[in-house]
Amino acid sequence: MSDLSGQIAVVTGASRGIGRAIAESLTAQGATVIGTATSDQGAAAISEYLADQGKGFRLNVNEAGAIEAFIAEVQQEFGTIDILVNNAGITRDNLLMRMKDDEWDDVIQTNLTAVFKLSKAVMRGMMKKRQGRIVNIGSVVGTTGNPGQANYCAAKAGLIGFTKALAKEIASRGVTVNAVAPGFIDTDMTKTLTDDQKAQIFGTIPAARLGKPEEIAAAVSFLVSSGAAYVTGETIHVNGGMNMV
C-alpha cells in the first residue's frame, strides 16, 4: 500500500462490485475519492460508505455534456484530479445474429466512449501538474472473446488499444495510462450466470474459483502508486490463470 494522501481520485461505477472495492482501497491509502453511480440512490450509497473521505455523484455518461460538467464540478469542489479509474461498465449480451443496434450502441457508449470523454476531461489538469494516473478496467474477454458478447468484447478490446495510444501520447508528462483486465470476479455482473455456466467456467480457471473485487483493487492500487511511475500502456491480467497473455 502506498500513501495517496492529498490525492483526488475519480472512480466511475463505484456503488458496488469492483468499483466499490477500488474506491475503498484508495480511501484506505488516504486518497479523497469521488465515486459515480447512474442513480441518485447509488450516489447516496457511495457518499455513505466514503463518509468524510469522498463523495458520490450521479453520472449518466450517455447524457450529452454530462461528463464535462461532472469533471468541472469535481475540480471546482475538490481540486485537480490525480487519479481516474474508468470502471463503469454494462453488458447487453446477445448472439450477434440477434443483437440489436441499441444493444451494441449502449455497450460501446458506456464502456468505451465514456472512457475517451472522461480521460480527455481530466487531461488538462494532469498535464499541467506533470502527474497523473489513469487506470481503465477491461476484461479477460477483450482478449479471449466470448460468445454472446461481441459488443462487450469489442469495447473491452478497444479499451486496451486506447490505453496504449494515450499512454504513448502523454508518457513524457508524467501521466501513466494502464488497464486491469479482470477474469471472472464475484460481483452482481457474474451473479446472473447459471450454475451450469459457472461449472463450465470453473473448469477453465486454474485457480478454480471466482476472483474477489479486492483482488482487482490491489492491481489498481499498484498502478496508481508512485512505484508504478515507469509502468505505462500495460494491461495487468487478474484472472486466476484463466488466460495468460
Partner: peptide
C-alpha cells in the same frame, strides 16, 4: 517543441 508542447502552449 513537439506536437504535445504546441497543444499545451495553446491551452
Amino acid at each position: 517543441a513537439d506536437s504535445l508542447d504546441t497543444v499545451e502552449l495553446v491551452m
